[in-house]
Amino acid sequence: MVYILLAVVVICVVVFAVLATSRRTPTSNDSVADFQRHLNALSPEARRHTVENYPVVTSPTEETEEPDDGA
């Protein structure tokens, strides 16, 4: 009986902890970290990966003739 009660208490605590974590309001630390993550993702090092690591694929017809207007 004691073990069952203990198990119920443990489950309640876990459920309460999960709910509390998922529903907590964002703090100023979250917004600072979020903004920093945003700026880090825009850093030249982060962008170099996108711009330089992937080759530009051109279609075969494009090499022969192409309109010059802007995209």
Binding site: Y54, S59, D69, A71
Partner: peptide, 15 residues
Amino acid sequence: ANTLVYMKGRGIVLN
């Protein structure tokens, strides 16, 4: 004028 498509992990796949 032009349509370009970039695919995640592959780069520009259509121009």
